[in-house]
Simulated assay, not measured.
Amino acid sequence: MYQLDKTTVAKKRSPPVKVLSSQLRTAQNQGAAGSGDCWVIRPGRGRSLPVSLVWMQGTVMEAPLDTNTVLLMDETGTFAVQGVNNVPKGKPCLSQGKYVMVMGVIQAVSPEPVIRAVKMADLSALAALHRRMWKLEVEELQQVLT
């Protein structure tokens, strides 16, 4: 019979949680000895939600060609995305003004949220619709999860 070892189980992550940059700014690290593996956000009155893999959307503010990091902005503030050169098809969707989706692992929350990209997609074709719906999508998912 096949048995999972503890390292396999420990590395398993929950699905990405939709979050806003303002929520990450106030997140608290709950990882072992400050490891950063698990953060807790407070989506509402008395509720808490553990997150490590996040789904964020925003407008590209800065995308220097010579770096592996870009700056995005959602309706609540800015956040940095690292590792964009390592994401398949990630770099082509990163020009100033484009609206993009990023899934990634939280690296830091203060003074500005930083995530390491795992997946990226250009949502610019329907940017107006995505922008209008984003905050509602975030709120709805977080209500379901808490």
Rank of each mutant, 00 (worst) to 15 (best):
P50W: 02
C38A: 08
A27F: 00
Q143T: 08
D122T: 05
L136D: 08
T8H: 14
P111R: 11
G36K: 03
G104S: 04
W39S: 02
E140T: 08
P15T: 14
Y2E: 12
T76K: 13
D66C: 08
A108D: 06
M120N: 05
P50Q: 06
P92G: 06
L145A: 08
I106A: 03
G44P: 10
A32D: 12
V81T: 01
K89M: 15
M103L: 15
G77F: 03
H130L: 05
R13W: 14
G97T: 10
P92V: 12
M133E: 13
K11P: 06
W134Y: 15
L71I: 02
Q30W: 14
E62A: 15
S95L: 10
N68F: 04
R42A: 00
V100P: 00
L4M: 11
G36E: 03
Q28L: 09
A121T: 10
R132S: 08
W55V: 04
L20P: 00
W55D: 14
T78Y: 09
G104Y: 01
M56R: 02
S95H: 03
G44T: 15
V9Y: 11
L20Q: 03
S95I: 14
S124N: 13
M73R: 08
G97F: 04
K91R: 15
L4D: 05
R25L: 05
V109H: 03
R42F: 03
A127Q: 14
L71H: 06
V114W: 07
M103K: 12
E139F: 07
L53F: 10
A121I: 01
A80F: 13
S22L: 02
K18P: 05
S22Q: 08
K91W: 06
